[in-house]
Computed example of a mutant assay.
Amino acid sequence: MAEKTTLTVNDMTCNHCVGAIRGALEEALPGTQVEIDLASHKVSFTGDKAKGEEAIREAGYTPEAA
């Protein structure tokens, strides 16, 4: 089973942000399972942690350790 990474993305503030982050992760990590909780600013995904963090950064957000 792929390892799950959970990050806090405090600058994710709306559903547009959620969509942008989800899209970036799915593009960077094909087949990843993405879970996003807007209320707690938590983003979880499976697969390569470094690639996922980079994808979130490239989408314009700031991932931090949860």
Results as ranks from 00 to 15, higher is better:
residue 61 Y to F: 13
residue 1 M to W: 03
residue 54 E to G: 00
residue 55 A to H: 07
residue 22 R to V: 06
residue 14 C to R: 00
residue 60 G to L: 01
residue 46 T to K: 01
residue 52 G to K: 03
residue 13 T to E: 13
residue 20 A to W: 00
residue 48 D to N: 15
residue 14 C to K: 01
residue 28 A to I: 05
residue 54 E to A: 15
residue 59 A to I: 02
residue 12 M to T: 05
residue 30 P to L: 08
residue 1 M to K: 01
residue 37 D to K: 08
residue 12 M to E: 12
residue 60 G to Q: 08
residue 23 G to I: 02
residue 22 R to T: 15
residue 13 T to Y: 12
residue 45 F to S: 02
residue 27 E to Y: 00
residue 28 A to W: 01
residue 20 A to E: 13
residue 59 A to T: 04
residue 63 P to F: 10
residue 38 L to Y: 07
residue 14 C to D: 14
residue 61 Y to M: 01
residue 58 E to A: 10
residue 37 D to N: 12
residue 39 A to R: 05
residue 57 R to S: 03
residue 7 L to D: 02
residue 14 C to P: 09
residue 34 V to Q: 08
residue 41 H to E: 14
residue 50 A to R: 07
residue 21 I to H: 05
residue 1 M to S: 15
residue 19 G to Y: 06
residue 11 D to F: 02
residue 56 I to T: 07
residue 46 T to G: 02
residue 15 N to P: 01
residue 65 A to H: 06
residue 56 I to L: 07
residue 62 T to Y: 07
residue 12 M to D: 06
residue 24 A to I: 03
residue 29 L to E: 13
residue 7 L to Q: 04
residue 35 E to F: 04
residue 4 K to Q: 15
residue 13 T to K: 12
residue 52 G to L: 11
residue 20 A to R: 11
residue 34 V to R: 01
residue 6 T to E: 14
residue 42 K to D: 11
residue 53 E to L: 10
residue 35 E to A: 14
residue 10 N to W: 08
residue 9 V to W: 10
residue 19 G to V: 04
residue 61 Y to S: 02
residue 17 C to T: 01
residue 21 I to E: 06
residue 53 E to H: 02
residue 58 E to M: 08
residue 7 L to N: 02
residue 48 D to Q: 03
residue 9 V to K: 02
residue 4 K to F: 10
residue 29 L to Y: 10
residue 12 M to L: 12
residue 7 L to R: 01
residue 23 G to D: 14
residue 22 R to G: 05
residue 50 A to H: 04
residue 51 K to P: 00
residue 16 H to A: 15
residue 60 G to T: 06
residue 42 K to C: 05
residue 25 L to P: 04
residue 6 T to S: 12
residue 12 M to F: 13
residue 33 Q to T: 14
residue 59 A to E: 10
residue 21 I to Y: 09
residue 5 T to P: 00
residue 28 A to D: 11
residue 33 Q to G: 11
residue 59 A to H: 07
residue 56 I to H: 04
residue 17 C to S: 11
residue 35 E to S: 13
residue 59 A to V: 01
residue 5 T to F: 06
residue 50 A to W: 09
residue 43 V to N: 00
residue 29 L to V: 06
residue 13 T to C: 06
residue 66 A to C: 02
residue 45 F to A: 04
residue 1 M to L: 10
residue 23 G to C: 01
residue 26 E to I: 06
residue 1 M to P: 03
residue 7 L to V: 15
residue 57 R to L: 10
